[in-house]
Design a protein around this nucleic acid. Structure first.
Lengths: 186, 186
DNA sequence: GGGTTGTTTCAGAAATATTTGAAAATCGCC
DNA sequence: GGCGATTTTCAAATATTTCTGAAACAACCC
């Protein structure tokens, strides 16, 4: 129970706050709502399950916001719901294994953002069959180079997509292994 | 000169617009201002140098916005300034090598966002020397586990940082090589 | 069923981030 | 060293995202 700390431990409180602020800011740089990153940071840095009220209190946010945000974190899979016997409230616990956490985040962002992009990107290419026949050479050259460019991009994105696969699993230790592998390779 | 196309080539125009919109949206998901991503997309998909007015016209944005955004892209290093003899205007050309482009983006984000984070993260740890002596065991345990958690996170982030190094250079082909390497490894 | 506790939803409010546009600065040239 | 052309800057306006709070909903217990 870290909830009530000796008064001399303002330093711990302060350090936690610094971390929450830092993580929140980093999140918003990478397109994650500041509050979502902060809630995650709070749960992570405390290392114990907290209920909605404690999160609200700890960050000074509204119930609605806390509820939505916690749900989102659970959906992502980096926070889990926990129940305590004899308590009707729901508690939330952040994944404590940081490698697992990063793998999960990577997998989620791949699934939600990269995969759909691949399809959409493919649809930005054109087939050359539109114009009737000759005389459209200039246009047809433009179309060809357009397609080439998009094809290059698509190939690269597919490669990145498959890097994400390697890193994020499925064998549990993806990211860690990749780190070692890449460190070894000159 | 793709500027003026035969009328039947609305399909090319449309495909370009689709790509610009797509890339813009993807950018904003990853924390890059939509317009910045759109300007980049426009330059990339055209494959030729454009001046500020053409960009403004092409995306329907203001001069100020175009100017700021183009500068930012040049600062990032994925767009370069080009001058045409006999023309006082500045032209802008997007990097056409997609691998090089991704490497540059990665290197930039690492430098701007990950590196500073490492330092800040280190500052979220506490030294145990604060409390007087005994009697603070409970608090001291809390501090210790706080430090452990942050240490884990820091170690992981450092590893990610060094993955970025591998990928983004320095030998020119970082990302491409990494892709192959990881694909080979079972 | 009705009372109590806890959770979710969502329209409007607030906070943030982005964009505009016009003035100021810079540049190249004569 | 002054002039038109071009680029940059930045305060104010706008757009977008995020947050609030109160009402609706759900679960549990008696």
């Amino acid at each position: 129970m870290t909830g009530t700390l000796p008064p001399q431990d303002d330093s711990l409180r302060a350090a936690r706050e610094r971390f929450v602020a830092l993580w929140g800011q980093m999140g918003s740089t990478w397109g994650i709502p500041r509050t979502m990153a902060q809630v995650h940071a709070l749960l992570f840095v405390r290392g114990e399950a907290m209920n909605t009220d404690e999160v609200m209190e700890g960050l000074g946010i509204s119930r609605g916001n806390a509820s939505m945000t916690l749900r989102r974190l659970v959906d992502w899979g980096i926070v889990s719901r926990v129940h305590r016997r004899g308590d009707r409230k729901e508690y939330f616990l952040a994944e404590q294994d940081v490698w697992k956490m990063f793998r999960t985040i990577l997998a989620q962002r791949k699934k939600r953002e990269i995969e759909p992009l691949l399809d959409a990107l493919a649809d930005c290419r054109l087939d050359r069959t539109t114009g009737r026949k000759r005389k459209v050479d200039q246009a047809s050259a433009a179309i060809e180079s357009h397609n080439d460019r998009l094809q290059d991009l698509l190939v690269a994105m597919r490669a990145i997509d498959s890097i994400c696969d390697r890193f994020s699993g499925p064998g549990g230790k993806g990211l860690e292994i990749a780190v070692k592998l890449l460190d070894r390779a000159s």
